[in-house]
Amino acid sequence: MIFTEADMGAIYLTLRLATTVTLLLLLIGTPIAWWLARTKSWWKGPVGAIVALPLVLPPTVLGFYLLLAMGPNGVIGQFTQSLGLGTLPFTFWGLVIGSIFYSMPFVVQPIQNAIEAIGERPLEAAATLRAGPWDTFFTVVLPLAKPGFITAAILGFAHTVGEFGVVLMIGGNIPGETRVVSVQIYDHVEALEYAQAHALAAGMVVFSFIVLLGLYGFQRKQASLGMKYGG
């Protein structure tokens, strides 16, 4: 067995984190993407920019501010304490929140592009066929934007698996709670356990390659079907 028990724990934790974050992001990101795709409001620019910020900011910056916000005196911290949940830094759910911000653009943008590509016409056609807004969303928007949602889910998942800086800032290094694969690799290197670091690092390379290969294959297939897609 090339992976130690601690490695396996880190892998399991990483997958659990990425799955949780992806599901939550699809729920949160879809309305944001919908709004960004359809609004004519002045706020589209600023909101779009905020969503895209993690693309350019060092993860440490994001992690630093989240750490402050989730701390005992921060806005989020005050709120979670008032609910009797304590504070979130150095917990699994703290990581989830950090990752949601960090991976947001990778989920929102493909969905937004897919919804924009649908255009007004199918939505108007649905309205003239007595479909209300929710009905239209589930019967027209979701099927037509499906490739965008799949791209979003894959990118959101893969990007969360690959995060490091934010985790280190707000999660630290607690086995089974916040020690994800990228942190575990860091620990191995610090401890000069290069063989262990290699095993995990190479695993990440293979995982990422397969995910992207699958994504591009999927997108090419969609393109050849003549369907519009985002991402």
Partner: peptide, 20 residues
């Protein structure tokens, strides 16, 4: 009344069939 509550039929200039 919003469009989806009006008992009308609408034929658009170009095809408006749902492609899926």
């Amino acid at each position: 009344k919003p469009t989806h509550k009006r008992p009308l039929g609408y034929v658009f200039q170009e095809s408006s069939l749902f492609p899926h």
